[in-house]
Amino acid sequence: MKSWKEITWGGLVMEPGSSVAYETGDWRSSRPILDEEKCSNCLVCWVFCPDGAIQVENSKVVGIDLKHCKGCGICAEECPRKAITMVDECEAKAEALK
């Protein structure tokens, strides 16, 4: 972290695309879980995600960027096949530790 003497005045951001470096995933209280079997790769979730957290390769959903997903749940709401469900973040973490 930089000191007040080292940063630009007025909160100016001097490099484009720097929001990638800003990890907002720890704001999340619920986590989207993707059911790959139900997913038809229509990419509606990718269109609606306000944080660009739906990871797509070759027109297919390959995962969710949990470093930036804030857990808003818009993807789960919009998915026409109900392939995404929101689960409690603490429970998801506990599950991942098992």
Partner: peptide
């Protein structure tokens, strides 16, 4: 020299910008 003016400033740098 493109720059972003008025971006959101979290608890991590807001204080430093006020110090300036």
């Amino acid at each position: 020299h493109p720059a972003t003016f008025g971006a959101y400033d979290h608890w991590d740098y807001f204080f430093e910008h006020k110090r300036q």
